[in-house]
């Protein structure tokens, strides 16, 4: 069996006619900073050999196909457009909200392959084949997701700007962990900022959707 690490050095240096000494000199790096060696990544060389050629697009629009809420949508985008912008502006899926536009408030949370991410800090061009789920994709056959229903029943929304992101965070939590604790819900929403102060009701609603009875007053009574 060939040693993949051996191969990787060969492939990295193949055809460049550079000695190690030459590289060190050329890159302006002294040997004190480190020594040349093979990559520690297993199987890298084989994967490298099979890689297709890179493709450069933009800065103008380029056509991509996005998988959104079970549909395929072909859309022309600029590389600089965030997923949030493409969802809201190009595809009119305005349920996803943009508040800070810096990944600091999580109002723009969507799922990529069922994992919550900030759509404001994801370039649409990077999404590739991953499945996008937005707040519009949570309801099935006209029936709200249990977390959405619980948000309504517990008044877990005030102005509503943080709500789609909160719901996406909490619904994802229940997917991973059907019986979360209060602390789990707090962790899942620790990046979701709510200015109105819906948190106690978000906690109540999410736990209720998981079939766990909890209310902010009960918690107090239990403690007292």
């Amino acid at each position: 069996m060939k040693d993949p690490e051996e191969n990787s050095e060969q492939s990295a240096n193949a055809g460049r006619g550079l000695s190690r000494r030459g590289f060190l000199k050329g890159a302006g790096i002294t040997a004190a900073g480190g020594v040349l060696m093979t990559s520690g990544i297993a199987g890298l060389a084989d994967a490298e050999a099979a890689a297709p050629a890179p493709d450069t697009v933009g800065p103008g629009r380029t056509s991509v196909t996005l998988k959104i809420n079970g549909d395929k949508k072909k859309v022309a985008i600029e590389p600089r457009q965030t997923l949030a912008e493409v969802l809201r502006i190009e595809l009119n899926l305005t349920g996803t909200k943009v508040v800070c536009d810096r990944g600091a408030c999580s109002a723009c949370t969507v799922w990529l392959d069922n994992t919550p991410v900030n759509s404001c800090m994801t370039l649409a061009i990077e999404v590739g084949k991953r499945e996008i789920t937005t707040i519009e994709g949570l309801a099935k056959n006209g029936k709200l997701h249990p977390v959405q229903e619980a948000f309504v029943a517990h008044d877990a929304s005030m102005c509503g700007f943080c709500t789609p992101g909160m719901v996406m965070s909490c619904a994802s939590l229940l997917q991973r962990n059907p019986k979360p604790t209060l602390d789990d819900v707090k962790t899942a929403t620790s990046g979701n900022l709510c200015r109105c102060g819906t948190y106690p009701k978000v906690f109540e609603a999410t736990l209720a959707a998981a079939g766990i009875a909890y209310s902010q007053t009960q918690a107090q009574a239990a403690k007292g």
Binding site: A51, P54, G58, P59, I125
Partner: peptide
């Protein structure tokens, strides 16, 4: 955000050859 070109690298070798 400024407009820019996008290159999707598919190998380390390609990536490190992109100047």
């Amino acid at each position: 955000m400024n407009a820019f070109q996008w290159t999707d690298a598919t190998s380390v070798k390609q990536a490190t050859g992109q100047n």
